[in-house]
């Protein structure tokens, strides 16, 4: 779910908009190293995959369904900066075409779900890989745990934005508790699914998984 207009005041939203634009510019320069414009169709297809995965619901318990968020999934599959670019494109289109997430809240959403969700989540993944034994199973485990942590991390982003420019009188403590409580649960689901999807891709095309290539020292063919 994306922040709509009005939850966070205009000045804060604008500030985060500038920050998101700057971060996105830096990410595009970063990806230029391995995701050249040559691979634009590839990035587009990965974005379509993330978008589609977000639209397909699965049952959680009877009467409730959820969907994948895909930040860490995208980062592990195509790399943190490309993942950030892909997630930002998805958020941009959701806000501009689907009216999902407010226009003024675009920067807030890109920082939370794109930057914290993909780049932050990938940092967790890298750290975990260093701690876990050097086996290919570790990449699956690390991706799952990182995805589980990235969801409450993104929720923390919202709590921070609320602390800076929240428009309501609800105490920060209540917002923090509500956001953390729900997002830790969502994170568990996200972690389980991310691990399973990564495991499925690793078992058929390990060469396509950026996070595995980095761990084995081999560069993926398409991303160099």
């Amino acid at each position: 779910m994306h922040i709509p207009d009005g939850f966070i005041n205009g000045a804060t939203a604008a500030g985060f908009g500038v920050a998101a634009a700057g971060g996105l510019g830096a990410a595009i320069r970063q990806t230029g190293k391995y995701l050249s414009e040559r691979q634009v169709p590839l990035a587009g297809l990965v974005a379509a995959f993330v978008f589609a995965a977000q639209m397909v619901n699965f049952p959680v318990v009877s009467g409730m369904s959820g969907h994948l968020l895909g930040g860490v999934l995208a980062a592990v599959l195509v790399g943190p900066w490309a993942g950030f670019v892909v997630l930002s494109v998805v958020l941009f289109v959701q806000s501009l075409f689907f009216a999902d997430g407010g226009l003024t809240a675009l920067g807030l959403n890109i920082v939370n779900l794109g930057f914290l969700g993909a780049v932050g989540g990938y940092a967790v993944y890298r750290t975990l890989l260093r701690l876990l034994p050097k086996r290919s199973r570790s990449t699956v485990l690390a991706a799952g745990i990182a995805a589980g942590i990235a969801v409450p991390l993104a929720a923390m982003g919202f709590v921070l934005q609320y602390a800076i420019g929240g428009t309501s009188d609800v105490s920060l403590q209540v917002v923090f508790t509500a956001m953390m409580g729900t997002h830790i649960l969502i994170g568990i689901g996200e972690g389980v699914i991310t691990a399973m999807v990564v495991a499925a891709v690793v078992s058929s095309r390990p060469d396509l998984v950026y996070g595995v290539a980095e761990y084995t020292g081999l560069r993926t063919e398409a991303m160099t």
Partner: peptide, 21 residues
């Protein structure tokens, strides 16, 4: 019907990622 049945969904999503790529 519930989250415990998620593995086939996740595996198919992985397959679709490979196809999309």
């Amino acid at each position: 019907t519930w989250f415990g049945h998620i593995r086939p969904y996740a595996t198919s999503a992985g397959a679709i990622f490979v196809r999309s790529y």
